[in-house]
Design a protein around this nucleic acid. Structure first.
Length: 198
DNA sequence: TAGGTGATCTTG
DNA sequence: AAGATCACCTAT
């Protein structure tokens, strides 16, 4: 597609700012003949070195977290709860384990493909609202871990502009184990958007 | 609100 | 090496 975001977009050093800036961008995938896309409407920032909620907290290096240390602009996809694949965008320079979890998109292309993958109706918010739902709708799995976001399988493009007063910042979801870091306002979403989780 | 499911990491 | 944990979803 046109307007593909350049590698530099992902290399900024402020993952919280990038998480906010990702709202309104279009997330695209193309696997085989199946093209699907949606506008990002909910994100969460995870900041490796200092963030107790981050898988790479304290610069923890394991097989799973290794990709978070890569130069920004690749996918971090992991498997949780025995059935869900979650998609993150790695940011910052090599050695800084920052990433942004994509929590919801509003579908804009390939709706019939998404519907077939998800098994729910096109106009149902459950099609792409939720971090595990959007990965399934887009066909992303752990096989796409480490995939470059400037390639031709998964990429971002300019999508829609949202003014600042439509952007809401709150605490992140499902990170109660992180102590006081669970209170950080690092979740961002579009006010009133139907696909944002409650 | 409870249970499912399996990779990852271990006095969380 | 077994068991707790887990950035969630679906169905009662």
């Amino acid at each position: 597609m046109h307007n593909k975001l350049p590698a530099g977009f992902y290399r900024g050093t402020d993952v919280v700012a990038i998480a906010r800036n990702l709202l309104g961008k279009q997330l695209n995938t193309c696997f085989g003949d199946d093209y699907t896309a949606g506008i990002i409407v909910e994100t969460e920032a995870y900041c490796g070195a200092t963030d107790r909620a981050c898988h790479a907290f304290g610069d923890k290096r394991t097989a799973r977290t290794e990709v978070m240390y890569a130069t920004g602009g690749v996918a971090y996809v992991y498997f949780v709860y025995g059935l869900h694949h979650l998609f993150n965008i790695v940011t910052n320079k090599e050695g800084a384990a920052d990433a942004v979890l994509i929590r919801a998109i509003e579908p804009v292309a390939g709706l019939e493909v998404m519907q077939a993958r998800r098994g729910v109706a096109e106009n149902d918010k459950r099609l792409t609202g939720g971090p595990a739902r959007l990965t399934q709708a887009l066909g992303i799995t752990v096989a796409d871990n480490k995939t470059s976001l400037t390639g031709d399988k998964i990429w971002l493009s300019e999508g829609r502009y949202y003014p600042g007063n439509e952007i809401v910042a709150t605490t992140r979801i499902g990170v109660d184990y992180a102590g006081t870091d669970a209170l950080l306002p690092w979740r961002f979403f579009i006010r009133g958007n139907n696909y944002v989780s409650k």
